[in-house]
């Protein structure tokens, strides 16, 4: 079977575009918010343990607080670093994941519809999530969060223009 020569792949990691820096901030706020229940639980157990007097005061809550602070500083930054995208002339490549890496390419010719969504946090930070929907069962929707609001809309227009051109 004669296979056509494979064109050189734009797959080198350095060609990935980083998402908006505010995405890291948004992630940080999100992580902080979601660790609040843990902090409250730590505070409660701290108070309860203090009555028993078994452990030195501040040990439980202090350790938990330190871990949470470390996580809030560390994790969002690495998640931000792990995320990238590459906008081609006819395809979008989305890379994500810290432990479990995933590298997805969606050709514009297979996009069914496009969403640009903003949650309250994202609105505050001026970023948006671009979601491409395909007809496949796997990767039925591929989302790319952390784009600047303007950029997300511009990308949507680009992709739409591409689809329009193809269908006409």
């Amino acid at each position: 079977m004669n296979q056509p020569p494979v064109p050189p792949l734009p797959d080198a990691d350095d060609e990935l575009t980083r998402v908006h820096p505010n995405y890291a901030h948004a992630l940080r706020v999100q992580t902080a918010l979601s660790s609040l229940p843990v902090l409250v639980a730590a505070a409660v157990s701290e108070v309860a343990l203090r009555k028993l007097g078994l452990v030195p005061p501040g040990l439980v809550a202090g350790v938990v607080l330190l871990i949470v602070i470390a996580l809030v500083i560390r994790i969002p930054q690495s998640r931000f670093n792990a995320r990238g995208y590459q906008m081609g002339s006819d395809r979008l490549r989305v890379v994500r994941g810290l432990m479990f890496r995933s590298d997805t390419v969606v050709p514009f010719g297979r996009v069914q519809h496009i969403d640009v969504a903003q949650g309250p946090l994202e609105r505050f930070f001026g970023i948006a999530t671009l979601t491409l929907h395909t007809a496949g069962n796997h990767n039925a929707s591929v989302s790319l969060p952390g784009l600047g609001e303007e950029l997300a809309r511009a990308m949507r227009e680009d992709i739409r223009a591409h689809i329009r051109r193809e269908t006409l």
Binding site: V105, T134, H138, N139
Partner: peptide
């Protein structure tokens, strides 16, 4: 096909292999 994804867990990344998911309708 509708999309192509290359997915790697920590071990797979260390050992240099991957799972290829293809988007197939249905």
């Amino acid at each position: 096909l509708h999309s192509v994804e290359i997915a790697q867990g920590p071990v797979a990344r260390f050992r240099g292999y991957a799972t290829v998911h293809l988007g197939l309708a249905g």
